[in-house]
Design a protein around this nucleic acid. Structure first.
Length: 297
DNA sequence: CACCAGGGTACCT
DNA sequence: AGGTACCATGGT
């Protein structure tokens, strides 16, 4: 029940902590998570990712697909614009990958993400899974683990019980979305066959889903690598790096995003996002430190 | 202890 | 089209 996948240019830690998936837990030098109801432990070794599952596997294609093992990262990075900010981002977190997640889990998770820090999203999702998800097989002597609850499981929950997972005003949005999916009014699997624009139009129909969350699902679940989610971090980065002391209109900014970052703009966005989140706090701390020293004199 | 967080929406000018 | 308040909650 273990398998080894030769990889190069794969930074597992950066990938699993970059705010695209919310259920991975670091255990020493390994990562434990649940993919489509299967418990799995991942470990990065020299030139390979080693996986361990709770049960014997007929094949590991589900994991290869989730991790996007076969993507040629070099080729993707080659399409990024060659500017200071992108070079710094790629240097800082080279090996960061986009996962290919289950659409329902991704959609539900990002409905829960609005104005929440990643740490809090992780907590809410964990509570949701423990309250409403089915138990999954785990290795002996491991604590119980739960699958992400199906649309049906969420749809049959009471809003009060969802709110108990600390999701606040997002509860009615998740519940209504789950009901639409469970009723078969929208087929999430079939959206994968549509083009990006069509799928986006369908996604923003769900309550609590606007352009940003739709783009997250398009990018992280459906693999549209030019879907470009703009959250507060990315907005700050774009304005600061590419429009210093200017105030581009929404239209202007959207046009810039569409035309500047190339066919893998969503991938580039993820590098900018992770770079901002991991490197900027350090420089900010440094700035605070500098100010404090100056004040002390 | 304010401030802010991988936003969306209704409602205002 | 472009601003604003509000939604609920807890990390930093």
């Amino acid at each position: 029940m273990t398998a080894s996948f030769p990889v190069r240019d794969y930074d597992l830690a950066a990938t699993l902590t970059s705010g695209q998936a919310f259920r991975w837990k670091r255990c020493g030098d390994a990562w434990q998570g649940i993919i489509s109801g299967r418990w799995v432990e991942l470990r990065q070794e020299a030139g390979a990712i080693v996986a361990r599952a709770a049960e014997a596997q007929r094949d590991w294609n589900w994991l290869r697909h989730y991790l996007q093992i076969d993507v040629d990262l070099e080729k993707v990075l080659g399409t990024f614009p060659n500017d200071d900010a992108m070079r710094a981002s790629v240097t800082a977190c080279r090996g960061l990958r986009l996962l290919r997640q289950d659409p329902w889990e991704c959609l539900a998770s990002f409905i829960l993400s609005s104005t929440k820090q990643i740490v809090q999203i992780q907590q809410i999702v964990r509570a949701l899974c423990e309250c409403f998800g089915s138990r999954v097989a785990v290795p002996a002597a491991h604590e119980a683990q739960y699958a992400f609850p199906t649309p049906e499981q969420v749809a049959s929950a009471a809003e009060r019980d969802l709110r108990a997972c600390k999701m606040g005003f997002r509860a009615p949005n998740l519940l209504a979305t789950a009901r639409i999916v469970a009723a078969g009014e929208v087929d999430l699997a079939r959206l994968a066959e549509q083009d990006c624009e069509t799928a986006r139009t369908a996604l923003v129909q769900f309550p609590g889903v606007g352009e940003k969350i739709a783009n997250c699902v398009l990018l992280f679940a459906y693999g549209f690598q030019d879907a470009f989610p703009v959250d507060v971090w990315v907005r700050k980065a774009l304005l600061h790096l590419y429009f210093p002391r200017r105030r581009p209109s929404v239209q202007r900014l959207e046009r810039f995003i569409r035309t500047y970052f190339g066919p893998n703009s969503g991938y580039a966005q993820q590098y900018l996002f992770h770079y901002m989140r991991t490197q900027m706090p350090r420089t900010r701390k440094k700035a605070v430190e500098k100010r404090r020293r100056k004040a002390a004199q």
